[in-house]
Write a protein that binds this DNA or RNA. Sequence first.
RNA 1: CGGGGUGUAGCGCAGCCUGGUAGCGCAACUGCUUUGGGAGCAGUGGGUCGGGAGUUCGAAUCUCUCCACCCCGACCA
Length: 570
Amino acid sequence: MRTSQFPLNTVKETPSDAEIISHQLTIRAGLVRKLAAGLYNWLPLGVRVLQKAQQIVREEMNDAGALEVLMPVVQPSELWQESGRWEQYGPELARLHDRHGREFCLGPTHEEIITELARNEIKSYKQLPINYYQIQTKFRDEIRPRFGIMRSREFIMKDAYSFHLSDESLQETYDRMFQAYNNIFTRLGLNFRPVLADTGSIGGNASHEFHVLADSGEDAIAFSTESQYAANVEKAEALAPTEQRADANQTLEKVATPNQRSIEEISNFLNVTTAQCLKTLLVKGDDDTVVALLLCGHHSLNDIKAEKLDGVASPLTMASDADISQAAGCDAGYIGPINLGVPMIVDRSAAKMANFICGANENDMHYTGVNWGRDLAEPTRIEDIRQVVEGDASPDGKGTLTIARGIEVGHIFQLGTKYSEAMNASVLNENGKNQIMTMGCYGIGITRVIAAAIEQNHDDKGIIWPPALAPFQIALLPMNMHKSERLKTAAEKLYIELKDAGFDVLFDDRKVRPGFMFSDMELIGIPHRIVLGDRGLDNGMVEYRARTDSDNQDIPLDQVIAHLKAATHQ
RNA sequence: CGGGGUGUAGCGCAGCCUGGUAGCGCAACUGCUUUGGGAGCAGUGGGUCGGGAGUUCGAAUCUCUCCACCCCGACCA
């Protein structure tokens, strides 16, 4: 490709609203342009990268036995009503009407559609298992789209859905997808980790997320220092402390704490650590009741763990101010478990506290020196409801946890029969009886993969594409070609030879200064660069430089192709 | 949804407080010079100052209203 026919649309200035590096570079390099909040146009250069990513995903999915289909973006409400998600899904689901007033939505995901397809097309156990996938645009009306293509409202996703008769068959396909995902992200050249995950709103059993490790990631991942254990902190179990509870050697006292509400304020005011304070959260329970959740002051509630507990409303909802004053007789900030007449769920760590501080259920008052079993009953319900923190014991018993940031680029689930049951997707089994199929689902955010790749691979000059994602492999840069007929002839000849050798070459035939060319090619991250100049031509030499090199290398003109083949492992 | 902020040329911004014929840099276009790390000089084009209403002789500037976009928060016990 020639730059004279393939405009680069690079810009020198960073747009003011781009916060993270991948957002800045996707715009500066001319991959995308913003159309509106969370909506992006993809320019020719960006499309080439998209296609590279899609191709790898396609190849690995096909190799793993999945079959490509294509489903509509616009989906009829009836199917969503059948699965129950028309009501469940909030404002994130963009709904619309056609001219006849019929209701539709823009698909944020395709479980309903694939289940409808499968129940019509699959009649016999002999057709199972089967794994369908598509690469399709999704729309989710995010609360806050941000970071450019990292979290946009419209995005491209590869989603796959498998159908089975048995859990064993589902597990087999799940394992195969797990392997396929490892292959895909490895080929894409990303530093990633599969982690145990929560199944979220889609529901189901086993689940892994694939995270690209980057400081700008929106998810926190807990890793074991000693083992392969890795989990989203939403999911990571906080083990009960192994040490015994300390002796109750302080006396219970009620102290005035005027205007000291938060754990932070209380600990400062009383000159103690936050770990000595007990945090009492009131949340909504079943049918208009209120439940107290008790945590160590330095721990945070994990609402995903909490809302799964019996007696706690899902989604987790904090009690209103009115509920609080009715249940505890005080304002938020002074609630405590002593004489609190609501059911209590105590975190494993909080149950081991001794001589702690808590609210007195009276405004501007706290208790100090509080002890379980003496000043109030021993906890009757102890659960894991907190977020893990750095240094916690790893749930698999090996090592301790460290916490790193990750970008979720893939997610695989065992869905079970949630959709197939609701939508009656069944086949005839070996005994001639109807049997509901069990399902798995497997997603990869294609557009997010590109943002993640840039987050992980860039320098102050621009993008450094992993070879598999680069829009072009080689930049061919003639120096001042318009002034030298000899150079022009040589450059044109080399361009043809490189193309014939099977390389993706970007030939910069613009009449621009050398520095301009260098900067452009570095910004858009082309992995390999060949520079042709009159000086080198006198000696039959060209210059080679990889995007990651700091120096040029002189290569005899007749060995360029061999050199590039070695450099690109072709 | 709550809080904060910003809308002025394609992009980045000044001008607004204190009302009086709309500016700077980059980009674009033309010409000349230049040519191994985002060139120099000269010139040219480009703006419903986010929309609407109001105050005023006169509004980018003051008032009201609507819209768009950005940031933070949605853990307060």
